[in-house]
């Protein structure tokens, strides 16, 4: 699956450039599903990028695992979900030294959460690269109840916590790693625009 091109939006909406290798610098790599293809291309551009890499992959049903493992990262680990990988990812950030490059690849939910953890760990934003691949489903925070709904594919959608009907905004929080969802019928309760599929 090729890299996703998103249509231009407000400044807060993250954009994703293709990953570029930083040679054999120490690296932390986090990918889910189709994000594996971005790492495969990264390693094809410069195999040395794997020499000191710690790669964490969340297959989410994709079959790229064996090919990723064969790239020869110094450490390779598969996890069934982001929350299952979180403990390891946090430990890797805690142990990392300045000069470490972070590569994030896959869905916006993964990139957003990976970014939020890395920034909280002190990694400067200019040491982080991210490339979007695969599903364009969004991780949304309800601005009313603060609950997070994962894998939102329609606009509006129903908050999985408080049940409000939320409008999908392009406003993104780097701290939370989530887009903001705002009640769509606050002024006209019950009058809700037609539900559409989210576009890139």
């Amino acid at each position: 699956m090729p890299r996703t091109e998103f249509s231009p939006s407000i400044a807060s909406r993250p954009t994703y450039a293709p990953l570029r290798p930083h040679g054999a610098a120490p690296a932390l790599m986090l990918a889910d599903a189709e994000g594996a293809e971005a790492l495969l291309e990264l390693a094809a551009a410069d195999p040395a990028v794997m020499d000191r890499a710690h790669l964490i992959y969340i297959p989410a049903g994709a079959a790229h695992g064996p090919r990723l493992r064969d790239l020869g990262a110094k450490m390779y680990h598969e996890a069934p979900s982001f929350s299952a990988a979180l403990e390891r990812y946090r430990k890797a950030l805690l142990d990392a030294k300045m000069g470490t490059q972070l590569y994030l690849a896959g869905t916006e939910g993964l990139i957003g959460q990976g970014l939020a953890e890395a920034l909280a760990a002190g990694l400067p934003a200019d040491a982080i690269q991210s490339e979007h691949r695969g599903s364009i489903a969004r991780r949304m925070q309800c601005v009313h109840c603060k609950g997070i709904t994962e894998n939102v594919t329609t606009d509006p959608f129903t908050c999985s916590h408080c049940g409000l009907t939320l409008f999908v905004r392009d406003h993104f929080s780097r701290r939370l790693g989530a887009f903001q969802g705002v009640c769509v019928d606050a002024e006209t309760p019950g009058i809700v625009p037609e539900m559409k599929e989210i576009k890139a």
Partner: peptide, 9 residues
């Protein structure tokens, strides 16, 4: 001095 500094330095 600059080698091995923890993340966030």
């Amino acid at each position: 001095i600059l080698s091995g500094q923890p993340l966030g330095t």
